[in-house]
């Protein structure tokens, strides 16, 4: 398994934070895998920006549907892992 195939939730959160900012009183390092982006205060452009950042970082393409499909960080992680052709490392 290559490093590119081992993407964790932390990687998603790091990309999200860099692309769309943190704050708003929500602990992104908490258990947010199944909290919707909307509840986290991120709109669809924030998700689009994050998808773009992940694609550039890992060199894969997640497709335009990823932004609509991924409603939570956990779902975004699954799509990223699929795009990378690997498996998710959900543990820290």
């Amino acid at each position: 398994m290559t490093a590119q195939e081992f993407i964790t939730l932390q990687d998603i959160v790091r990309a999200l934070r860099a692309a769309a900012g943190a704050g708003d009183g929500i602990d992104l390092d908490g258990d947010i895998a199944d909290v919707t982006f909307s509840e986290l205060g991120y709109d669809s452009i924030a998700v689009l920006e994050t998808v773009g950042a992940l694609e550039r970082e890992y060199g894969f393409s997640m497709g335009d549907e990823a932004v609509q499909e991924a409603q939570t960080p956990g779902q975004l992680l699954r799509l990223a892992v699929e795009a990378a052709g690997g498996v998710a490392g959900l543990a820290a």
Binding site: A18, A19, A20, G21, A22, G23, D24
Partner: peptide
């Protein structure tokens, strides 16, 4: 400004 507004 809040962190969220800076990237955009």
């Amino acid at each position: 400004l809040p962190d969220r507004l800076l990237p955009q």
